[in-house]
Design a protein around this nucleic acid. Structure first.
Length: 566
RNA sequence: UGCUCCGUGGUGUAAUUGGCAACACGUCUGACUCUGGAUCAGAAAAGUUCAGGUUCGAGCCCUGACGGAGCAACCA
């Protein structure tokens, strides 16, 4: 497990990405006086998801590994979409993941003054102009990827007029949408982003930090690169879609820089996961339309959702490390994520007994009213986790699926005449069972062999299966929420002509009530994690109360019996 | 028919900068097991999209095809 936040070089030995290689080369070449300075720049318009975790691990990870720093900078250039609620959640999630930006919490809005001055500077140099045309006209003049654009009739305005107009835009003299400031670059550029991009627009919505001070706001493309520059960022790591924006950022920095320093932008592939989607807009729709219970619904790929589901930060970091950073657009299998949690939880969670679908077992030759305490190891992977005792008595619950009246060939569990071990207790033999009118098995009768108690001298007898169980009298009730993938197709957002909502998995949540758990679980607190023996990993949900224990299934155990039945 | 980027087992990534392809997950065997988990041992699986070229030698370099992605928000 990771100690603190430091990335163990041994862990990442084989995961050295092309980005890391560039950083190493830059360092070797003596660039930036040997500094490594990155930044994680989220827009506060939604909750962080596991795709952001991939970026966070890179941004903070590279800084840590190479003795540098990583800033947290909120890209808050659009007050109509951004809220403080999101800022708080973003900070919480980054900390939870295990990273620290120390005192370097910045906002693009910190630089609104400098950005404005730079825009004025561009105007004076004849490199920016105010365009009075409506959005639709500007858009149509952009041309298409295969046809050059046409120049705006306002392109030739004098710096004086532009300056005056821009100032008045910022004083609120004009309506939203009536005028914009554009960089004057090249309407015929094969790169659409160079065709006189809009760099400032009028917005009269109050900003969460600057209030009413500004009536014009910089576009992302006009803010991002310069903010990196202002902060002395050496490596601006971002996703592939910004590759074509780079020439624009470079052009802007060319107008701004006073020496050789400039941030170096490197693009990597964003994370795609099977059976889910990463679009913040669509995730917001799921929340707003009530298709999930909220941003932290355990089926969501958000960090708060994964946390509630029972994922650990270590498992997410491990997963990110496993998938690597390249320029190939790939879709990663969720089962690899699931492997990463199992791998982590296997080592750290105590084993407990819980029966999800209870079936009563009566041990007919066991004395009525008698109770024994049997000892169980908490975690065979970690002796230091010790042991506990749980009560055994005449009436027990086992899992319904652990009994079959007419078992198929390779069924090892309980069936008429068959023997199994009750883990930690005795070997029992099925002598009969009862059914209700509908044909459901309602009770199983067994005898036990007193000689076979775990640890006893004659306890070595081989049986095919070992079952988990709870004592009926002592068990506590619990609610268990079983989660499955939210969508039933690998790429729900990538289906042509079909709405992703059509692919929602109707069985993604199954709520089980009346589950029976061993008594030790009575004191479990929200976010406590356990392995329910033979079933999977479970985590106490924040909805849980002392009257109503609620567990979320994080992920099931590998189940070769289930696989055999496919 | 513009620009940019990408193309290696089923999946995700490697290949010491040109030396006949490695790792992880998954899959399949077998061992062990008081979790049909875990662990351990082993196996199958790509000849690197295709075609030329340079070279003693190419997944790496060159040329050309083919395939995929991104780019035309007053979003980020």
């Amino acid at each position: 497990m990771n100690e603190g936040n430091l990335i163990d070089p041994r862990e990442t030995k084989l995961a050295g990405s092309f980005i890391e290689q560039i950083i190493i080369d830059d360092l070797a070449a003596g660039k930036n006086d040997g500094r490594v300075h990155t930044r994680f720049p989220p827009e506060p318009n939604g909750y962080l998801h596991i795709g952001h975790a991939k970026a966070i691990c890179l941004d903070f990870g590279m800084a840590q590994k190479y003795g540098g720093k990583c800033n947290l900078r909120f890209d808050d250039t659009n007050p109509v979409k951004e809220e403080v609620e999101y800022i708080d959640s973003i900070k919480e999630d980054i900390r939870w993941l295990g990273f620290d930006w120390e005192d370097r919490e910045y906002y693009a809005s910190d630089y609104f003054g400098k950005l404005y001055d730079f825009a004025v500077d561009l105007i004076k140099k004849g490199l920016a102009y105010v365009d009075d045309q409506p959005a639709a006209v500007i858009s149509s003049q952009k041309g298409t990827p295969t046809q050059p654009g046409t120049e705006s009739p306002f392109r030739g305005r004098s710096p004086e007029e532009n300056l005056d107009l821009f100032e008045r835009m910022n004083h609120g003299e004009f309506e939203e949408g009536s005028r914009v400031l554009r960089a004057r670059i090249d309407m015929a550029s094969p790169n659409m982003h160079m065709r006189d991009p809009i760099i400032y627009r009028i917005i009269k919505t109050a900003h969460h930090r600057t209030g009413e001070s500004w009536k014009v706001y910089p576009m992302y493309d006009f803010a991002h690169g310069q903010c990196d520059y202002f902060e002395g960022i050496t490596h601006s790591l971002c996703t592939l879609e910004f590759e074509v924006h780079r020439p624009l950022y470079d052009w802007l920095i060319d107008q701004l820089k006073t020496d050789d320093y400039r941030p170096r932008q490197i693009e990597f592939n964003r994370l795609n996961l099977t059976y889910t989607m990463m679009s913040k807009r669509k995730l917001l729709e799921l929340v707003q339309e009530g298709l999930v219970s909220g941003w932290d619904d355990p089926r969501m790929p958000t960090l708060c959702g994964l946390r509630r589901r029972g994922y650990t930060p270590e498992s997410i970091r491990k997963f990110v490390d496993l998938i690597g950073y390249t320029k190939v657009e790939a879709i990663n299998d969720v089962s690899l994520l699931e492997h990463a949690v199992r791998d982590d939880l296997n080592l750290r969670t105590p084993r407990v007994f819980a029966v999800l679908n209870p079936l009563k077992v009566v041990i007919t030759n066991y004395p009525e009213g008698k109770t024994e305490n049997v000892e169980l190891i908490n975690n065979p992977e970690d002796e230091s986790m010790g042991s506990r005792t749980i009560p055994f008595s005449r009436e027990l619950y086992i899992e319904q699926e652990d009994f079959m009246e007419n078992p198929p060939h390779k069924f090892f569990r309980l069936a008429p005449g068959k023997e199994v071990r009750l883990k930690g207790a005795y070997i029992i033999k099925c002598t009969g069972f009862e059914k209700d009118a509908a044909g459901n098995v309602t009770e199983v009768r067994c005898t036990y062999d007193p000689e076979t108690r775990s640890g006893a001298s004659l306890a070595d007898r081989k049986v095919k299966a070992t079952l988990h169980w709870v004592s009926a009298e002592h068990a506590i009730d619990a609610e268990v929420r079983l989660y499955d993938r939210l969508f039933n197709t690998e790429d729900p957002a990538g289906q042509k002509d079909e709405d992703y909502r059509n692919f929602l998995n109707p069985d993604s949540l199954k709520v089980l009530r009346g589950c029976k758990a061993e008594p030790s679980l009575a004191t479990a607190r929200p976010l406590d994690k356990f392995q329910f023996q033979r079933l999977g990993y479970f985590c106490v949900d924040p909805d849980s109360t002392s009257n109503n224990l609620v567990f979320n299934r994080t992920v099931g155990l590998r189940d070769s019996w289930a696989k055999l039945n496919k």
